[in-house]
């Protein structure tokens, strides 16, 4: 039983790695758009994992390799100087062993506001997570299938205009309606100009369960483990600005540590366009 449970857990943990975090996304963003500005980011991420960390943080080999694809559409609109609205939708396709699932994942709607009236780069953020109606009973699933609420903040620091460098950090709390463990997220990022059109960045981000990655007293043991996890992840990236108002982001992610989650790597590309 223990053996079976471990194997089963391994498969689900690997598959579930991207269930909670469909793509590398910040806890919050510090940036507000000017009034009337729009920004659309289209991202494609691929991640894979064949191992997982158990709830004590011990690494185990999984019994399948996950292949997870996600397409994320993120739109922001500068509603006013004081508020930026955003909406996000994700299409997911993931497979691990016999499990395979694809379709529209969670939707996210939110608002961002200024923590500093005069400076951009210091913001609070609030959003709601709306499941799109997918099944939440399958081991491999598109999301938790629950409504969630997230509040957080993000700040810039160390802005140096000469070298086009700056840092960002942020944190948020995500509260779920139902079984998933409430979570905190945090990140720290540094961006640096490499050339006229290229910037490099490095990011550390973490996602931590507010229940200390313990089992939850709900109907499915397997789901409990996957919805109550910690992970610390390192990201490296390059941002290319080929022309005004356009940018392309190339990212590489690597899971450094976790509990109740897969230990994988991911690559992504994101194209952003801003317009008035």
């Amino acid at each position: 039983m223990i053996r079976y449970g471990t194997i089963r857990l391994g498969m689900l943990a690997v598959c579930g790695w991207l269930a909670g975090v469909a793509g590398p996304a910040n806890a919050a963003s510090p940036w507000l758009l000017s009034e009337g500005m729009s920004k659309l980011s289209s991202s494609v991420y691929y991640s894979t994992a064949d191992a997982y960390w158990d709830r004590d943080g011990v690494r185990h080999q999984g019994d399948c390799r996950s292949n997870n694809w996600s397409l994320n559409e993120h739109y922001e609109y500068g509603y006013s100087y004081y508020h930026t609205l955003f909406a996000e939708a994700t299409v997911v396709d993931k497979a691990c062993g016999p499990e395979q699932v694809g379709g529209v994942g969670d939707l996210r709607l939110g608002v961002r506001g200024r923590l500093n009236l005069y400076q951009n780069g210091k913001a609070w953020e609030a959003s709601v997570i709306v499941p799109s109606g997918y099944s939440r009973d399958r081991p491999a699933r598109l999301g938790y299938g629950r409504f969630g609420v997230e509040v957080g903040f993000a700040m810039r620091f160390g802005v140096r205009e000469q070298t086009r460098s700056h840092g960002e950090y942020g944190a948020s709390v995500r509260l779920w309606e139902g079984p998933p463990a409430d979570q905190t997220q945090a990140y720290l990022k540094w961006s640096q100009q490499l050339s006229a059109a290229w910037d490099g960045w490095v990011k550390m981000e973490g996602n931590f369960s507010l229940r200390n990655a313990k089992e939850e007293p709900i109907e499915s043991l397997d789901y409990n483990r996957l919805s109550d996890y910690d992970v610390v992840r390192l990201g490296l990236g390059l941002q290319w600005t080929p022309r005004r108002m356009w940018s392309v982001d190339f990212a590489l992610y690597y899971d450094l540590w976790g509990r109740n989650t897969g230990c994988g790597t991911g690559v992504g590309i994101s194209v952003s366009r801003t317009w008035e």
Partner: peptide, 18 residues
């Protein structure tokens, strides 16, 4: 009055109107 204050003190690249 807040808008008036912000207009002259906000980030230089912000293009918002009031």
């Amino acid at each position: 009055t807040t808008d008036a204050d912000v207009l002259f003190k906000k980030d230089m690249y912000d293009t918002s109107s009031f």
